[in-house]
Simulated assay, not measured.
Amino acid sequence: MTIRVAIIDDHPSITWGFERLIATEMPRMSPVGAAHDLAGARRLLHDAHPDVALIDLDLDGASGIELISEFTDDAIRFLVLTGLRDDNARQEAVRAGARGVLSKSEQPAMIIRAIDRVHAGELWLDRARTGELVDSLRRQARTAADPFATLTPREKQIVAVALEHNGAPNKRIAEHLGIGENTLRNALSTIYSKTGASNRLQLYALALRHPMR
């Protein structure tokens, strides 16, 4: 199956370069279009329905985080490619639903690898940034009520397996549960809605603070 990739950056030269990088991986990957502002990005995501969207956080003065939050319930997996060194902005992007963050200065092979991993359902964060984000999410969860109180026993089992295999692709987690990958995605969407989490990393942080009973 071809991984369909959209590129969102306010510099046309950047989108041009990434489109050509992704095109070198055809037919395994394929660029489906580029956008340079929020309005154009919304049209692109609505019309093209990409599997993965490479997105900069600074879109000509607007925030790419707004776009990530807007499409958090869609199947699109956002991978942040940024030149910003603001760790708070990077953390906020993951809280909003981004599946990974890496620098625009990364080697092309690493960017391709990150697209592959994010498409497979994994998170793409370095160890230090993962630790910082989990600590931040744990602090936020301290004043929250039990986020797992409304889950069914089966949903709690799904959460437990997802946490045990944190970072693994959805396919592997579904195999451990004996269900299909689409069934797992639907179940996780319900779990996210009930717990207030946006992704598996946030579920992990909530479970550290509120162990399931």
Results as ranks from 00 to 15, higher is better:
Ile22Ala: 00
Ile22Arg: 06
Ile22Thr: 07
Ile22Lys: 05
Ile22Asn: 06
Thr24Gln: 03
Thr24Tyr: 03
Met26Arg: 13
Met26Trp: 11
Met26Pro: 12
Ser30Ala: 04
Ser30Met: 00
Pro31Cys: 02
Val32Gly: 01
Val32Gln: 00
Val32Pro: 03
Gly33Tyr: 01
Gly33Trp: 02
Ala34Phe: 02
Ala35Leu: 12
Ala35Asp: 09
His36Thr: 14
Asp37Arg: 11
Asp37Tyr: 09
Asp37Thr: 10
Leu38Met: 14
Leu38Lys: 15
Gly40Asp: 07
Gly40Glu: 11
Ala41Arg: 09
Arg42Pro: 12
Arg43Thr: 15
Arg43Gly: 13
Leu45Ser: 06
Leu45Met: 09
Leu45Tyr: 07
His46Ser: 11
Asp47Arg: 15
Asp51His: 13
Asp51Trp: 09
Asp51Tyr: 08
Val52Gln: 01
Ala53Asp: 04
Ala53Gln: 02
Ala53Arg: 05
Ala53Tyr: 02
Leu54Pro: 01
Leu54Val: 00
Leu54Ile: 00
Asp56Glu: 10
Asp58Lys: 15
Asp58Cys: 06
Asp58Val: 11
Asp60Thr: 09
Asp60Glu: 09
Gly61Val: 10
Gly61Lys: 10
Gly61Cys: 07
Ala62His: 15
Ser63Lys: 12
Gly64Leu: 01
Gly64Trp: 02
Gly64Phe: 02
Ile65Phe: 12
Ile65Asn: 12
Ile65Pro: 11
Glu66His: 15
Ile68Tyr: 14
Ile68Val: 15
Ile68Thr: 09
Ser69Met: 04
Ser69Lys: 09
Ser69Ile: 04
Glu70Val: 08
Phe71Thr: 05
Phe71Asp: 06
Phe71Gln: 03
Thr72Asp: 07
Asp73Gly: 02
Asp73Lys: 10
Asp73Pro: 00
Asp74Ala: 13
Asp74Gly: 06
Ala75Val: 01
Ala75Lys: 03
Ala75Ser: 06
Ala75Gln: 05
Ile76Pro: 08
Leu79Cys: 09
Leu79Glu: 03
Val80Pro: 14
Val80Asn: 06
Val80Phe: 08
Val80Leu: 08
